[in-house]
């Protein structure tokens, strides 16, 4: 780690002021990616603005037909929230499967989606649920938010404040873990609301999370794992290949995980 300035605002207003003022700053929203990267000297921001002292960014509320999750809410809080477990058990399960207990207690939903790691779980989940990301400046639909590997629609100085997640969907997330890192090697989130079905795939795409249109069309007709029979898995050339999984294997796993997600979403 190189030396850096450290700021810990106590209110969102202070945080807004700091991001506008401090040069070359990184926002610390749990730090489960940023801090290891800084320790390895792969990132060297001049300043870090830690949002953990901003209470208004933490918490989960039911507002009408939506769950509103503060950006600094930890994965462990989402996983154990009675509200989330009642309204969207699949989302609670997704959060419960992120990283390990340490990561789940330090890492936050806002931090995860702002980083948009191509193997992160939340991006697929929020796409499939049709969530809206709220920042200090605007509201961004999930479909517009995730713009590519490690890139988002966020502008300089923009801070995620909360995530609005519609309830009432059939939803599940099935993850195949990398045997070493336990990140998603392939993760498929399936959400069905009314006749609209979203199938979002993480861990596999060469440019981050993506939607699998063929599967969505098939499942839109009949929401059953069998509907995916005969549907071609996403083309290997669009997918990642590394020492753990070839693109062909990932392509195959997308089909397997999609079926498992649909089956889980239709269970009970």
């Amino acid at each position: 780690m190189y030396a850096f300035d450290f700021h810990r605002p106590a209110t969102l207003r202070q945080a807004n002021n700091l991001v506008g003022k401090v040069e070359d700053a990184k926002i610390l929203a749990g730090g489960q990616t940023l801090l290891p990267t800084m320790k390895q000297r792969l990132a060297s921001p001049a300043a870090v603005i830690d949002l953990s002292g901003v209470p208004e960014l933490v918490g989960i509320e039911q507002k009408g037909r939506n769950l509103v999750i503060g950006a600094m809410t930890s994965h462990a809080e989402v996983a154990s929230s009675a509200l989330v477990r009642a309204a969207l058990p699949g989302l609670a399960a997704l959060a419960a499967g992120i990283g390990d207990p340490h990561v789940r207690h330090k890492g936050t939903i806002g931090g995860s989606i702002a980083n948009n790691d191509p193997a992160a779980d939340y991006p697929a989940g929020l796409l499939a649920l049709g969530a809206t990301i709220v920042t200090n400046r605007r509201k961004i639909p999930a479909g517009d938010f995730f713009t590519g590997m490690f890139s988002t629609a966020l502008d300089e100085g923009e801070i995620i404040t909360k995530v609005i997640v519609p309830t009432g969907a059939k939803f599940a997330y099935a993850k195949f873990r990398n045997p070493a890192s336990r990140y998603a090697m392939v993760g498929v989130a399936v959400g069905k609301k009314g006749s609209s079905v979203v199938v979002a795939v993480t861990g596999a795409g060469s440019d981050g999370v993506f939607r699998w249109a063929d599967a969505e069309a098939a499942l839109g007709k009949r929401f059953n794992a069998k509907s995916l029979d005969g549907i071609k898995n996403p083309a290997a050339k669009e997918l990642n290949s590394d020492i753990h999984a070839s693109a062909e294997y990932r392509s195959h796993l997308i089909g397997v995980m999609a079926r498992r997600a649909v089956t889980a979403a239709t269970a009970k």
């Binding site: 045997p179 070493a180 890192s181 990140y183 020492i243 753990h244």
Partner: peptide
């Protein structure tokens, strides 16, 4: 342990070396 053709160790952390 996996080295690439240039002799770089690809499994140099727990991200890639599965304990």
């Amino acid at each position: 342990a996996v080295y690439d053709a240039n002799g770089q160790l690809l499994t140099a952390s727990y991200m890639d070396y599965a304990m």
